[in-house]
Design a protein around this nucleic acid. Structure first.
Length: 866
RNA sequence: GCCCCAAUGGCGGAAUCGGUAGACGCGGCAGACUCAAAAUCUGUUGCCUUCGGGCGUGCCUGUUCGAGUCAGGCUUGGGGCACCA
């Protein structure tokens, strides 16, 4: 009887309802089983699931289902990164409430994700905008405050004039806001900060332990933390204009060895000394104002000239008091790094050299490259930053750079004018946002008592829902009553903090909350976290390599230090997945055209695209699917026709998961054909094969043996591929295995073949199941089981069946392949050599020359050297 | 400018250790089934060739019996950081 076509959409609805009714994926703590926590970065509830989501969540689901079959107690939860600007923009543009808009989107996306058949424990679902979630986040904020990890300071901030909010340094990309793309301005504002810099060294050292993270991400974090080792030292200042409070100037350098090459000092325009001097110096005032106007865009920084203003002050060299160095205010010195002041050594630093050349300052080489003469070595326009020997440097002469650094620091410390210091590029994390749709900062400011934490009994500090978005700025600040409260300490009139927390705070601990989402008395249940954490496999986009992953690492440490958790690193394994891309199309007028409105004709060089009514379309490069370029394939429409399994299978086939995958209609068709093929194979094998639990025959026919070998080999290959997240390789092995069924299904086998057919069909079902779980259940059922495949253990491959009795070895002559040799697996080297030399093809290639040597690598290769 | 990664047929990509390059998929070609189409199945598919063979993993050197894989030097593409002292 011919199999009916597999009706994917229908069967998928069926199996999803079975899983839901049986609560198949509800997870409980079970100390008897090894745990495995697999997590995909939770989505922002934009309202629609796109193919990128499908790929991301399918990867996690394959891992979750595979580990589950392998006997692990798997935690695989889902939630929503639900605070953020789009909800406010929707409120402004369409007059809807941010809360209503967000929860509607969540409902829509939940339904879409559920139709993908993901093995998620939906009972743990959370949204960061849930009161139950942000209540705990407010507790954490206050715990951090208590612990000294939160502080308030007036600071120069990155202000996004489009989104009307402050951005963290991490959120400024090329001088523009990461969301709005607007040119970022500098403003002075009172802001809340997390002391992430307290953990700079620990965050850096911890990277070395993360051996299941991509090296690329670790490197990016290492660079971001930006450790540099050097020295801080004080110069005595003199000069008529010298303000009383500034008789000394502290600078930071990573090259203390070049101290004798110093020819000037330079301070930032924002340095307190500059401000003090400017009070009595109009020219300097103007210079500083000019520097402040300088843009922060990439282009402006690149083209900006090194400029300085001579303050007239002189600084005494710490080791040569008679040497007086001029002190400049210079536009290239950052107040935020080191001490906001440097000594300039033009010979060995390019910026210092450019500056010195402009202002005709001395350029004295003090590090001489190997093989150069100290007297003859000159630096003109290229600074020498390499290694060498010290010269023109008093007590340092002849030393290596390393030795000189140590010696200078030793002497500075002995004189009490300097010390060794390590600096980090990493700055504290500014978390205040002047926005409505975020977690309120649970702080009250009282004119009498100052900063007062909101008492625990008053948490959560709820967001008011009667807010007005008609004017720009923060609706919380404008709200008639919300911010007015009584001071919890003195009872007097006080005000709430009206800023909300950066949404990156929300995503910095959600992975821990998933371990005990019902917990109300505290942010997390430490016992639950001890069992589930760390996340064993975290999966998400490379775009979070720095921000989210660094913040989460910081949060885990801070939570540990507040007694909530017992670990430092939240994510033991990290995988960054590639995007789903699609060709782009444009019509004659240059307008983007959707793939749905394009017909492709021809192939290779003659391949061309036309609109449905026959007008020519230009084919552009494959790019990330985006609405603006119209190159999107809608998962819902695709699923309705081909089912979720087809989409799941296709987005993981072809390309390695860390790389982009190109969506093509032909490729998707291929996945669809394969689903039908698996169904036919299993249906056929269920018909012709043995019944479930049939005894294993004592003898197998050659045909049966071949199928069994293919089955066990495929199982082994897929298992190993999945262990290393090689989804595309696992899929290739599945295809290869499916190809092996043909001979067995065509012939009229004996009982041993019937057994082999059942075994192979079961293996195929197990193998495809993590990718196509609905088809998996359908096949499992067709094979005669009334249990769920989702609960069935992964089969074990029989090692004895993985190897053949004979092997095919390549035979080379002088490194060139000339022939093959089929020989017993356990043949001795001598036997292999003898057989190889008997080959006519070998004799021919040798052309009568004497054989000098024969290299035999058993089971692999023979190389005859003549 | 500094740092990192990649490059394999018409296309996406395979190739635990240095050991038969091109698994698997897509596309192409040929055939079977069919009145025909769809669907399915079978075979074939790196390039050149005087049919002996020759050449092939971005380019050039090197190490080795043997290099996609290791080393040195380039080229091109992608990514990260960037006035960080």
């Amino acid at each position: 009887m011919a199999a009916e076509r597999y009706n994917a959409p229908d069967r998928e609805r069926h199996w999803q309802s079975v899983w839901r009714e049986q609560k198949t994926f509800k997870t409980r703590r079970d100390p008897a089983k090894p745990k495995y926590y697999v997590l995909e970065m939770f989505p922002y509830p934009s309202g629609r699931v796109h193919m990128g989501h499908v790929r991301n969540y399918t990867m996690g689901d394959v891992v979750a289902r595979y580990k589950r079959a392998r006997g692990f107690n798997v935690l695989h939860p889902m939630g929503w990164d639900a605070f953020g600007l789009p909800a406010e923009n929707a409120a402004i543009e369409r007059g809807v409430s941010p809360k209503g808009w967000t929860y509607d989107n969540i409902a829509a996306m939940r339904a879409q994700l559920q139709s993908l058949g993901l093995s998620l424990d939906w009972s743990r679902e959370l949204a960061t905008c849930d009161e139950s979630y942000y209540k705990q986040q407010q507790r954490l904020f206050l715990d951090f405050y208590e612990k000294g990890l939160v502080y308030r300071k007036k600071s120069r901030v990155n202000w996004d004039p489009v989104d009307n909010t402050v951005l963290a340094n991490e959120q400024v990309i090329d001088g523009r806001g990461w969301r709005s793309g607007a040119l970022v301005e500098q403003r002075d504002l009172e802001q809340w900060f997390f002391r992430i810099t307290d953990y700079a060294e620990d965050l850096l050292a911890g990277l070395d332990t993360l051996n299941r993270w991509p090296e690329k991400v670790r490197l990016m974090q290492r660079n971001w933390i930006g450790k540099s080792e050097g020295a801080r030292l004080r110069f005595r200042l003199e000069g008529e204009a010298l303000p009383k409070a500034h008789t000394e100037l502290e600078i930071y350098t990573t090259r203390p060895d070049t101290i004798f090459g110093a020819s000037f000092l330079a301070i930032s325009p924002q340095h307190p000394l500059a401000a003090a001097l400017a009070k009595k110096n109009k020219g300097l005032r103007e210079f500083i104002a000019e520097c402040a106007r300088m843009g922060v865009s990439q282009e402006e920084i690149d083209t900006a000239e090194k400029r300085g203003f001579d303050t007239g002050l002189k600084a005494a060299h710490p080791f040569r008091a008679q040497t007086k160095l001029p002190v400049y205010v210079a536009n290239f010195i950052l107040m935020e790094y080191g001490t906001g002041a440097i000594f300039g050594c033009p010979a060995h630093d390019q910026r210092d050299l450019d500056f010195a050349n402009k202002y005709k300052l001395k350029v004295k080489p003090v590090v001489i490259p190997e093989g150069e003469d100290a007297k003859a070595f000159k630096v003109k326009t290229e600074a020498y930053t390499g290694d060498g020997r010290l010269a023109n440097s008093s007590f340092l002469d002849g030393m290596s750079v390393e030795a000189a650094k140590a010696e200078v620091i030793r002497r500075l410390e002995a004189k009490g004018v300097g010390k060794r210091e390590t600096n980090y590029r990493l700055r504290d994390w500014g978390v205040s946002r002047q926005r409505y749709w975020g977690c309120p900062i649970p702080i009250i400011r009282c004119p009498a008592c100052g900063v007062v934490p909101t008492p625990d009994a008053d948490l959560p500090v709820r967001l008011p829902e009667d807010v007005d978005f008609s004017a720009p700025g923060n609706p919380l600040d404008r709200h008639p009553t919300w911010k007015h409260v009584k001071c919890p300490q003195c009872g007097g009139a006080a005000q709430r903090e009206t800023d909300t927390l950066d949404t990156f705070v929300d995503s910095s601990w959600y992975f821990a909350r998933f371990c005990s989402p019902e917990e109300d008395a505290r942010p997390v249940d430490p016992e639950a976290c001890d069992y589930w954490l760390p996340v064993d496999q975290y999966i998400g986009g490379i775009e979070h390599a720095i921000l989210h992953l660094l913040y989460s690492r910081f949060f885990t440490r801070a939570m540990r230090d507040c007694g909530h958790l017992n670990l430092a690193e939240p994510f033991a394994g990290l995988f960054t997945q590639g995007m789903v891309i699609h060709e782009t199309y444009r019509d004659g007028a240059g307008k983007w055209v959707s793939p749905d409105d394009v017909r492709i004709e021809g192939d290779g060089p003659t391949r061309r695209a036309l609109t449905l009514d026959g007008r020519p379309v230009e084919i552009g490069p494959a790019e990330k699917m985006s609405k603006s370029k119209k190159n999107v394939v809608d998962p819902d429409a695709f699923k309705a026709h081909y089912g979720a399994d087809t989409a799941r299978w296709f987005v993981l086939s072809d390309s390695p998961p860390e790389r982009d995958v190109l969506w093509t209609d032909d490729g998707a068709q291929g996945a669809w054909r394969f689903i039908q093929r698996v169904w036919r194979i299993v249906d056929d094998a269920a018909e012709k094969g043995a019944k479930p639990g049939a005894p294993k025959p004592a003898e197998f026919s050659a045909e049966a043996m071949e199928l069994r070998r293919a089955a066990h080999r495929a199982l082994d290959k897929v298992s190993r591929a999945l262990d290393s997240l090689g989804f595309n390789r696992a899929i290739a092995a599945a295809y290869e295995f499916a190809n092996a069924f043909s001979p067995a299904l065509q012939g009229k086998g004996d009982a041993s073949l019937a057994f082999a057919l059942r075994e192979a069909a079961e293996f195929l079902t197990h193998i495809i199941n993590p990718f196509m779980p609905h088809l998996g259940e359908e096949c499992w059922s067709r094979l005669g089981y009334n249990t769920l495949l989702a609960n069935a253990p992964w089969p074990e491959a029989d090692q004895a069946l993985l190897v053949d009795d004979t092997v095919t070895m390549a035979v080379q002559v002088n490194g060139k392949r000339r022939d093959e040799l089929i020989i017993a697996r356990d043949a001795t080297k001598a036997a292999i050599e003898a057989e190889a030399l008997k080959l006519a093809s070998v004799a021919k290639a040798i052309e009568g020359r004497p054989v000098k040597k024969v290299i035999v690598v058993p089971q692999r290769i023979v190389n005859v050297v003549a």
